[in-house]
Write a protein that binds this DNA or RNA. Structure first.
Lengths: 349, 349
DNA sequence: CTGTTAGCGCCTTCAC
DNA sequence: GTGAAGGCGCTAACAG
């Protein structure tokens, strides 16, 4: 297992270590064609592979970045990761991927671990509980890019998708399909900023079309006792005709509920959801979804981070907001139902 | 950005570098309670973080492993990765994750890159085209574990799922549901060993129950011109009453076809598929699937790799075959009887 | 119990 | 063009 090292190559090629080093770093001007060929051959013969650890120690750069996602099992994280990886790969960087599981302690220890490993920068879907740490490191000049969640207490590069616009479009689409009684299902608890924007988008769309807001249609649910909470929503006197779910966990719960209670989508209930799902098109009623530009979030984050690392001239911190895309399938009902709202003035605005 | 280093800690604490080093490596026996406290405090004050790169260079160990998967977008890879990560995390190892995309060149360059980075070992879903390289490295003592694909030309640790048993059970289940005309849909082309086992499982089950084999039910399809090929299968004189698909790509194609042609599952066509799908339970007819123990494949691979790294006494190479699980839902025409869940971290929002 | 010393494998002036 | 020397930050004998 004894590794062949630069010194071995130098000896076998009959040159000095520094010449070999020059060769490795492609500074070919500093040597004769002769020596260059010879070194090349020896490296081949010996199957020499430079030790990146030693190199990193010396040049103080690892060409490695860290990515901290919420959960790699979640398609959102997966697509972002893939975007990051593809971009990095192409730029000569490697990626260490970590799952923080929305646990701020794990997040913190991962950040520290990555820094001890001397990564050149970190891309992170932050929990928000370590913003002080993140901000401090950023201030010291350590490259960090946040994605997916917005925080206003921290001046750091961020890559986000346009949650308001996405939610707005989704609900607007339902309205154009003729729906007025539109429910919103969101998880209860502290509102992450992005989730709040989705809810704002819901209200915004209703407002634009002068649809009065019925708070009995707005449900913040907990995972325990979910059935009762959805019963409240779907079995009240005037049931909604459509429902908008703000994330895929909610989507799965609502779809399961509708299926169990034999409520037909879209005939009895139109559904539009935030976040695309892998199988969305194969469901009983293929889902109309607001798809986030996940892969682009990844590539964009990677690009911004690498720009920082390679210290391009840049503003102190920048924020990139990428648009969501409404993918219309069948779960929101068909066009024929749309006439009802065709005369609403605001529709033409 | 100037990092605080061990030397700074030593000076500030009024001890020598080696004492601090001892402290870092928890060799507390070699110092007074006094000095220990003092060092602790200085580290705290200075926010000192050891440089792992320097440490790795010295001790010739990075506590990092590489994982090469086919495609992180695929749930199979994702769950395996998560298994690997969780196990490694808990054992103090970090993971560099790479996508080879079934491209042997990418695979090769990733293997080399990971070795230059001095990873302690590699877990890989090999393409098979670099078996010589893999075998050679393994022979030199470099820890490598293969998963997902079996190769008989290489003596390396492997972690596999029992593809034969899984397929056999799936088809046996269909038979027990009363089906005799059971189709098989598999991708055409070179048979990876594991896929062959799935096909063998199909034949094996038919044989056990003395069901004559009708080769017109066995379709090897290409992705182009798929519709015609499925037409051949589903529109012949005596159509099958059930179909078994050998991987999830096939599953999606077949389900899409059935949906488009308005063939009802399970009433007109029973379906059992290899590989669980995230939304399998929410489909029009929740799918009966053969689920591979993906998460366990990950943890097991990681465990075996780390055992090699830490050179436990072990046989030259070992092979672990984990059982698949048949999850009965409704697509095969029967009420669910058993539905166990893997013990894996929940999909959080 | 603590300090001194000599590297780990590579890079980089700076002489030759 | 090429080589010698010093050092990146840390560890691990080995003295003291």
């Amino acid at each position: 297992m004894s590794k062949v090292k630069l010194k071995d190559v130098a000896e076998k090629a009959g040159v000095s270590k520094s010449t070999v080093s020059q060769y490795l770093n492609k500074r070919y001007e500093f040597m004769g064609k002769e020596t260059r060929k010879r070194i090349e051959k020896v490296i081949e013969d010996l199957r020499y592979q430079p030790n990146e650890v030693a190199r990193s120690l010396k040049i103080k750069k690892t060409n490695t970045i860290g990515v901290i996602v919420a959960n790699i099992l979640h398609p959102f994280s997966t697509y972002v990761s893939r975007g990051v990886e593809d971009y990095c790969q192409q730029r000569g960087y490697n990626v260490i991927l970590c799952n923080a599981d929305n646990d701020s302690n794990k997040e913190k220890s991962y950040i520290e671990m990555l820094q001890m490993k001397q990564v050149d920068g970190i891309i992170i879907a932050a929990t928000g509980k370590n913003n002080d740490l993140i901000y401090r490191e950023r201030e010291k000049g350590f490259p960090i890019v946040l994605f997916d969640r917005y925080f206003d207490d921290v001046e750091v590069d961020m890559v986000l998708s346009d949650n308001y616009q996405g939610a707005f479009q989704a609900v607007e689409h339902l309205i154009k399909m003729g729906h007025k009684n539109i429910a919103l299902v969101a998880p209860e608890g502290h509102l992450l900023s992005m989730r709040k924007l989705r809810i704002d988008g819901y209200y915004g769309a209703l407002k634009k079309y002068n649809i009065p807001i019925d708070e009995s249609y707005v449900k913040f649910v907990t995972t325990e006792n979910l059935t009762n909470q959805l019963n409240d929503l779907f079995r009240q006197d005037h049931v909604p005709t459509a429902v908008f779910t703000v994330n895929d966990l909610m989507t799965i719960e609502v779809l399961t509920y509708l299926k169990e209670n034999n409520i037909k989508v879209p005939d009895e209930m139109a559904v539009v959801v935030f976040d695309d799902l892998p199988m969305a098109s194969l469901l009983e009623a293929p889902l109309t979804v607001v798809a986030q530009p996940t892969y682009e979030i990844g590539t964009t984050s990677a690009r911004m981070l690498i720009e920082r690392i390679e210290s391009k001239v840049k503003p102190k911190h920048e924020q990139k907001i990428l648009p969501c895309q409404l993918i219309v399938r069948q779960s929101c009902g068909f066009r024929k139902n749309a006439e009802a709202n065709e005369n609403i003035p605001a529709l033409n605005a």
